[in-house]
């Protein structure tokens, strides 16, 4: 799924116009310039996390959760600019992580990975189902 298609689907499901969203979303603080410049490239998991988290903050007026519960994600701190985005969507159950070790636990968010269309669509659904004020939404870590 490209970034543009992701944003288009988010707009459609949220009931907001897609036309002009790149400029409007940036002014509202939930989109970045790169979303428009690279709108035709496949969206990475860290960018899905960023857009979902910032939409949650800026459009849905949610408050951040304490991110200490996401400390088990081994790649969380690989990304200074997206660590909070990743932690917030993980803790709210919008996106999951995978245990990539067979003989123990090594939880991996996979920042630069890409999900299929169905997963990204479901992430948007989960985002829009959040009621502001909810705390840890659901634990998807076993998926």
């Amino acid at each position: 799924m490209t970034t543009e298609v992701f944003i288009r689907e988010l707009c459609q499901k949220a009931g907001i116009p897609f036309a002009g969203v790149f400029e409007r979303g940036r002014k509202e603080g939930w989109l970045d310039a790169e979303d428009e410049v690279y709108k035709d490239t496949p969206i990475t998991r860290k960018n899905v996390a960023r857009i979902c988290h910032m939409y949650l903050l800026k459009a849905m007026k949610a408050s951040d959760l304490d991110i200490s519960g996401a400390g088990m994600l081994k790649d969380l701190y690989d990304c200074r600019v997206c660590a909070n985005h990743v932690a917030q969507v993980y803790l709210r159950g919008i996106m999951d992580a995978k245990n990539i070790r067979r003989d123990g636990e090594f939880w991996w968010f996979d920042l630069n990975g890409e999900d299929d269309d169905a997963y990204n669509s479901a992430a948007i659904d989960r985002l829009l189902l959040i009621h502001v004020g909810d705390h840890v939404h659901q634990d998807m870590s076993g998926s």
Binding site: M54, S63, I67, A83, N84
Partner: peptide, 13 residues
């Protein structure tokens, strides 16, 4: 070291 916080603010946060 790496950053002192990864939960930086934004306008209003």
């Amino acid at each position: 070291l790496n950053d002192i916080t990864f939960q930086v603010g934004s306008d209003g946060n």
